[in-house]
Design a protein around this nucleic acid. Structure first.
Lengths: 252, 252
DNA sequence: ACAATTTTTGTGAAAAAATCACAAATTTTA
DNA sequence: TAAAATTTGTGATTTTTTCACAAAAATTGT
């Protein structure tokens, strides 16, 4: 009786992420709140859930809410970002080979990628781990010195990889964009890597949420006309969109 | 004023794992509990902490309770493993340079490593991420194809790194050991890499918990006499210990 | 099967903690 | 420097949790 109920609660919590005591009470109308409290207490002691004011949440949920494990907190996966990632993911076809960077947008993208037979090169540690969860995706990690702030690798050693690898598509994101300065990011080594990726790849897709527009970061790595597809959100300014379309860049 | 305090709280929480409001109040005697509550609320919204009744806990702490993110649950950090890792960590001196593998024992070791000025080469994604948390440790990730089962990189590409890198010490762990077959592991590419590490390093330390003794895995990568220091637990058989000491290997 | 023991559960009161609302203090901005 | 915006403190209020003990249910040994 008790055992089962506790398991059910754990399952529910796993599915729903978070439940208030009232919600739990609705699920188990034949026991008192006190009993449910005691159940939650036990589950907490087993380390399976976290009790929070008003109810409890699953450990999974905690990790989801908290953003990626280890990945900088400021990098929250907003709805916008997820939408962009979904659009981008829909463009990827089976049996292709692509490069992606290690930023937070890339991580969103990695999450949205379907588990199809593709090969991915990346310099992002978190991205690599995320992709490794998918059975059919073959992942190659670009080595090099680990940058602590964004958990990606850089340095000349990473570049050496490019000599021996091939991919059709580079799908990356920038930290900033203006018409004058093009796409830019905050780290020189990263910019270097992305430039090189541009050369290697037949096509380049850029994921850019509209909040990045008008900003300038220290290192530019591509101009407007260097990209083939721009994936953005609905707030992207119409006049700027024109500029891209003029250059035969697909905006979506 | 506020920003700093919030950062301090986050740091404290990261260090202590969990804090009650009273404890926080002791740390910040010049602000009211209400202010601290509001700070916690903000941190929660940023996904950096979890507010629980009475106070808050760091996301890290939650993850500790729930086991490693991503890493196979079966790979539990037992007390024995942690003790071995601590012993091993105590051997590491500032300003040294070392290689470590990507196994779960290595991950325990990475956790126990003090935040001192050293350089670490590793082929373990989880290990690299763990080490990247420590400010003073310089990490180089060995690239290559990502092995999904243990989240480490392999393949000839990783080996190419060794051409350009130098380290004094290789500190690794094996999945199995017998007198006849020496130290062995389950993957050929990993065995390859470890062999190469052995050649490169001046010294090799082996972490081996006693449960591995008597087992044989498909690929041997070192013999008894290849190592310089053996770090193990108290259940290590005395007669076997003799064999190591005969070869001038330090057993601890 | 039955009495004794242990475990689980429910209830209301008490305690603890969190929220709310508003005024005071501080900081930022123009 | 005044005005506006933000941050903070206080006490009352509300919500949630804990506590303590009795009732109910399940388990155990005979």
């Amino acid at each position: 009786m008790k055992r089962e109920r506790i398991e059910e609660i754990a399952e529910l919590l796993d599915k729903r992420g978070k439940l208030t005591l009232e919600q739990l009470d609705d699920f188990f109308p034949n026991v008192s709140q006190m009993t449910l409290r005691r159940d939650l207490f036990q589950l907490e002691q087993q380390g399976r859930i976290i009790r929070v004011r008003g109810g409890a949440m699953s450990v999974k949920e905690v990790q989801k809410v908290s953003g990626e494990p280890y990945v900088k907190k400021t990098a929250i996966h907003t709805d916008e970002k997820i939408k962009i990632a979904q659009k981008a993911a829909s463009l990827i076809t089976e049996n292709s080979s692509l490069f992606m960077d290690g930023g937070t947008t890339a991580l969103s993208f990695a999450k949205e990628l379907p588990d199809i037979n593709i090969h991915v090169f990346t310099n992002g540690l978190a991205v690599a781990i995320e992709l490794a969860q998918k059975k059919n995706i073959d992942v190659t990690m670009l080595g090099g010195q680990v940058l602590k702030d964004n958990l990606s690798t850089a340095s000349p050693v990473a570049k050496a990889y490019f000599e021996t690898t091939n991919f059709e598509l580079a799908i990356i994101s920038a930290s900033a964009f203006t018409l004058e300065n093009g796409f830019s990011c905050g780290s020189m080594v990263e910019a270097d890597l992305l430039k090189m990726a541009r050369k290697k790849a037949k096509e380049m897709y850029m994921m850019l949420d509209s909040s990045k527009i008008g900003k300038i970061m220290p290192y530019s790595f591509a101009r407007l006309e260097d990209i083939d597809v721009l994936i953005t959100d609905d707030n992207f300014p119409a006049d700027l969109k024109e500029k891209f379309i003029e250059k035969n860049i697909v905006v979506m």
